[in-house]
C-alpha cells in the first residue's frame, strides 16, 4: 500500500513530459493524419498518401533513400576506425578528441551548412587550395556529392558517440582472453568488438538514417535548388502551393517508410541482443 502511494506521487514528475508529448507530438500527429486522409473539401481519401507513387514524388523519395543510405554507410565506415583509435587513447586525450568532435555541434546547423557552401563553391576555399597546389578545380557545388558531404558532416557525431559508448564498455579482459586463445586483431574485431558494438551501431543508424532522409535544408543550400529530396517537396507543398493535404499525405508515407526500415533494424536485434533505440 505504501509503495503504491509513493509511486502514485511520482507520477506528477512525468507531467511536463506528458504535456510535451501531447502538445508537440500527439496533437500535431493527429492533425497531420487528419490532413493526409482528407481532400481539399474535407472528404475522406487515400489519394494524398498514394501520391508518393507519382513519378516526381517517387523519384525524390528514391533520391532521399540513396542519400540516407550513403550517408549512413559512410558514417559507419568513418566511425569505426575513429572509435578504435580512441579506445587506445588515454582518458584525457580521449575526452579531448570527443570534445573536438562535438564542438561543431555548438554552432547553428544552418551556419555550418552555409560554411560548406563557401568551401565547395566554384571560387570557394577548396578550389582555391587545389589550384594553388596545381590541381584542376572541382565542380562540387550544387551536386549530389555536395549534399552527401553536408549530411555526413552534420550527422557523423551521432554515429560516433553511440558506437564509442558501446565499445568503451567492453571489458578489456574479454579481449585479452581472446588474444590468449590465439585470436589476431582482425578476429578480435570481427568476433568480439563488432558484435558487442551492435546496440550502439543500431542507435547510430537510427540517429543518422532518419534525419538524413527527412532533411531538406542541406539539399536546399548545397544542392542549389537543382536537386530535391522528398523533404523539399513536402516543404514546398506546405509553404508554396498551400496544399497541406498533399504535404501531410507525403509526410505520412515517409513516416511509414521510416517505420518499416526501423522494424528491419529491430529484427536484426531480436536474436537475443539488446534492443535498438526505437522499439
Amino acid at each position: 500500500m505504501k509503495k503504491n502511494k509513493t509511486r502514485n506521487s511520482r507520477v506528477w514528475l512525468s507531467s511536463p513530459y506528458i504535456l510535451w508529448i501531447a502538445g508537440f507530438t500527439v496533437i500535431p500527429m493527429i492533425m497531420i493524419f487528419h490532413y493526409a486522409l482528407t481532400d481539399k473539401n474535407g472528404g475522406f481519401t487515400f489519394a494524398n498518401i498514394a501520391a508518393i507513387f507519382e513519378p516526381i514524388h517517387f523519384k525524390a523519395m528514391v533520391f532521399s533513400v540513396e542519400i540516407a543510405l550513403g550517408c549512413t554507410v559512410i558514417c559507419i565506415l568513418l566511425s569505426y576506425p575513429l572509435v578504435m583509435a580512441l579506445r587506445h587513447l588515454h582518458m584525457g586525450k580521449q575526452g579531448f578528441t570527443l570534445f573536438i568532435l562535438i564542438i561543431p555541434m555548438w554552432m547553428n546547423f544552418i551556419l555550418r551548412v552555409l560554411a560548406w557552401q563557401m568551401i565547395l563553391s566554384k571560387n570557394g576555399i577548396l578550389n582555391l587550395l587545389l589550384t594553388s597546389l596545381g590541381f584542376e578545380p572541382l565542380s562540387l557545388a550544387n551536386t549530389s556529392t555536395a549534399i552527401m558531404i553536408g549530411v555526413v558532416y552534420d550527422y557523423l557525431p551521432y554515429m560516433v558517440l553511440p558506437i564509442f559508448n558501446a565499445i568503451a564498455d567492453i571489458d578489456e579482459d574479454i579481449i585479452e582472453a581472446a588474444k590468449d586463445l590465439g585470436a589476431n586483431g582482425l578476429a578480435v574485431f570481427c568476433k568480439i568488438i563488432f558484435p558487442l558494438s551492435v546496440p550502439g551501431l543500431l542507435s547510430g543508424i537510427v540517429m543518422v538514417f532518419v534525419p538524413s532522409m527527412t532533411s531538406f535544408v542541406v539539399a536546399d543550400i548545397l544542392g542549389g535548388g537543382k536537386l530535391q529530396l522528398i523533404g523539399n517537396i513536402i516543404e514546398q507543398e506546405f509553404t508554396k502551393n498551400s496544399d497541406w493535404n498533399l504535404g501531410s499525405g507525403l509526410s505520412v508515407s515517409l513516416m511509414i517508410f521510416v517505420l518499416i526500415s526501423m522494424a528491419f533494424t529491430s529484427k536484426e536485434d531480436s536474436k537475443g541482443r539488446r534492443e535498438s533505440a526505437i522499439w
Binding site: 502514485n8 507520477v11 502538445g23 496533437i27
Partner: peptide
C-alpha cells in the same frame, strides 16, 4: 492510479490546446 493518469493526459491535452490557440 490509472484514473489519475487519465486525468493527467486530459489535462495535458487541454493545456496544449490552450497553448495552441
Amino acid at each position: 492510479m490509472k484514473k489519475r493518469l487519465m486525468y493527467f493526459i486530459a489535462f495535458a491535452a487541454l493545456a496544449a490546446l490552450c497553448l495552441g490557440f
